[in-house]
Design a protein around this nucleic acid. Sequence first.
DNA 1: AATAATTTTTAGACAAGTCTAAATTATTTT
DNA 2: AAAATAATTTAGACTTGTCTAAAAATTATT
Lengths: 220, 220
Amino acid sequence: MYSFTEENYLKAIYKLQEQSDVSINTNAIALSIQTKAASVTDMIKKLSDKKLLKYEKYKGVELTKEGKRVALETVRKHRLWETFLHSKLNFTWDAVHDVAEQLEHIQSAELIDKLDEFLGFPTHDPHGDPIPGRNGEIQQSNFILLSEFKVGEKGIISGVVNHSSLFLKHLEKNQLTLGRKIKITEASAFDLSMQIVLDDKNTQQLSHEVARNILVKKTK
Amino acid sequence: MYSFTEENYLKAIYKLQEQSDVSINTNAIALSIQTKAASVTDMIKKLSDKKLLKYEKYKGVELTKEGKRVALETVRKHRLWETFLHSKLNFTWDAVHDVAEQLEHIQSAELIDKLDEFLGFPTHDPHGDPIPGRNGEIQQSNFILLSEFKVGEKGIISGVVNHSSLFLKHLEKNQLTLGRKIKITEASAFDLSMQIVLDDKNTQQLSHEVARNILVKKTK
DNA sequence: AATAATTTTTAGACAAGTCTAAATTATTTT
DNA sequence: AAAATAATTTAGACTTGTCTAAAAATTATT
Ligand SMILES: [Mn+2]
Ligand SMILES: [Mn+2]
Ligand SMILES: [Mn+2]
Ligand SMILES: [Mn+2]
């Protein structure tokens, strides 16, 4: 249907749009997709011709309904594959993304439906990101940044903001993985670091930099 | 490493070489890969420059060691994916090939090793074809054409010669699937058709056309 | 409002892969 | 051995996607 490259552009634009909500400019796309602004302009024209986005010279772009549909489908495929790699093939959560970047472009509706079923219709990927449904429905999760938590509050680690391999490996090493129960025991007004207890036993000190990249589902 | 297209050419040449053993000519490749002879000549030159095959103008091609290595790796990936699709995702055996044609080009050694392990190191794909090992070792199977069997002989259905969807669906419908026990009860000298018994109960009449496309492992 | 700085687009080129039509080379037939 | 036929290669063009350098438009600064 749509090419490897087209899917990547649409996905990148979708993610930028998700964050900022205004129309997306050329440089932002170039940065996110690791290419040059001139290449982006070229591709944008083609996608506009195909009615996948609305483009006005010098004004940036906005996805059409169909463009958004393709983007969401690609995100769905990406996250389902990440889930497969992690939960079935035992890839670590920092290794799944690169392979999923390739797998997300395999063209087969049957494959994705069957993979979804095989995985038990997961709702979130190994990083806690929601997996869009067949029709692009994406369930809004009420996760809160750990850095927003107050002393005494509790929750379950449910996602990450930073997806870099370096950060994910750091979390893994400190057992700060999805599903872990976490409770804030101290918070420093000076450097915004926190003391936490994991699963009611393991006490740790977290820097603000770490805390502001962890998403937690609040519990009582 | 090597592109989608390069892998496809190498795989196609490998399969032709496997069958005929002489050097492979342009038209045969064009036919097998569904392209034009002129395109084949272009690509052959590139593969020759990269030392993946030996090419003499007007004389055909032969894979080098490295060319064969890449071909076998691609075959390995293809057959492992087919096995995954069939045994884990419940694809029918006539539907796996097309999707595997895409999946075989995913670049990740870790992925293939882990998939292999996840599948329990299978030795044969859903069509009975052997799966090359990590180092390209391919185990020679001693399957015999059903059409060669004599009355009274027994065996286990273990593979197919014809891989077309039409043929595979026909076999499926008649329960002539891999692993089934089969015994020849009659053979017609006139049209070479056979009467067989499946799993000691189901009696069927098979045309020569069907029998000569089924591979059976002989048992006593 | 004019100038400077930044962003975006255009112009022109390149790589991979494919194609048609024409030219070569090899093989078969006479 | 020449002529006819078949196979293969070359020439030149096209598509997708990318890039650099230069031009044009927009935004920020004075
Ligand atoms: Mn990812
Ligand atoms: Mn993810
Ligand atoms: Mn196949
Ligand atoms: Mn197969």
